[in-house]
Design a protein around this nucleic acid. Structure first.
Lengths: 171, 171
DNA sequence: CCGAACATGTAACCTGTTACATGATTAC
DNA sequence: GTAATCATGTAACAGGTTACATGTTCGG
């Protein structure tokens, strides 16, 4: 399993997305900005994995030329290998919040105040989107969504004093 | 500012990396798996930003042909615009932990137990790396590192019952 | 009947990775 | 002297985005 996208596609198929289009739509509806769900990424990735023997694409013969996707045993094994990669699972990828944090440190109060307000608003907005998503998503996704919300809460807490131990806050 | 890499490069220069090589080394030493710090990404990105008028590359005339980098006022403004993008700052990018979480849900206890142990070990390892990094890094980076550690702690807590409300745990 | 949603795909482009190429300086 | 580090860059490649191309089905 080369890329995160490929692993995630297998996971989507496993969770019930039975056509490439539905895999794409799942990415589009996802509250994470993972991937755009662009056809230029999804179709080639699926076709790569069909060639690799991970996915079977059964043509239905319908004029809409939908292909029904399913995982082969090999594909399921590859998916589980991907899911079990602890080092990769734990990696802190490109965190745009942390990437900017050192610059926020350097700001004076006058510049920081409105930005902090904007960040807090954006975090709230993010949590609402997450909440709305959880309502209608596959139950298996909920624990992940809750983790994302807690991550947002952590960031919000951080904003209180830009991560510096303040006079009144701790922990 | 098109990419996160470009914004981060400006930030590195702002924080004292005065040559392209030092920007690269900062990425290599970074505990986040951000970018590899590959010369094939960093040099072109810096040269793009020199062309854009964000960075001045002053040739020193030394035989080692080091170029001293500094931010122009335009570059500083671009950096701050990048840093002030609240929506992007708050985005949950490609979180490999959350991406895998729905698959962990589906595992039976027999499979889950060793994986959970591996994940906990990886999280501890990550926190140690983070700790070692914080010791010698620019003080401005510390609050970001601490946030990453708390993020790891959140993940570790999640692992206790795979995010499901257990009989003995809560919150 | 017409627009939205379903459905698959390609082409140009951008950016990042790996590997290569070159050479100077420093520490042992 | 030689290995590690400093220093800059390019070329081939891989993977994702945007925009385009094409056609079907369903709801109003």
């Amino acid at each position: 399993m080369a890329t995160e996208l490929e692993g995630t596609i297998l996971s989507e198929i496993y969770h019930g997305a039975d056509t490439a289009f539905r895999v794409r739509r799942a990415f589009e509806l996802s509250p994470y900005s993972e991937w755009s769900g662009s056809s230029g990424a999804v179709y080639p990735a699926i076709n790569r994995m069909v060639s690799a023997g991970y996915i079977v694409a059964r043509e239905t013969g319908e004029p809409r030329r939908t292909k029904k996707l399913s995982l082969t045993p090999l594909g399921q094994a590859a998916m589980m290998t991907w899911a079990s990669d602890a080092v990769r699972a734990v990696a802190i990828g490109i965190d745009p919040f942390i990437l900017r944090a050192s610059l926020w440190q350097a700001m004076d109060e006058e510049k920081w105040r409105p930005l902090r307000a904007a960040l807090e608003a954006a975090l709230q907005q993010s949590n609402q989107t997450l909440e709305a998503y959880a309502q209608q998503a596959n139950p298996a996704e909920r624990p992940g969504v809750e983790l994302a919300q807690k991550h947002n809460a952590l960031r919000a807490k951080w904003l209180v004093n830009r991560g510096r131990p303040g006079p009144s806050e701790e922990g």
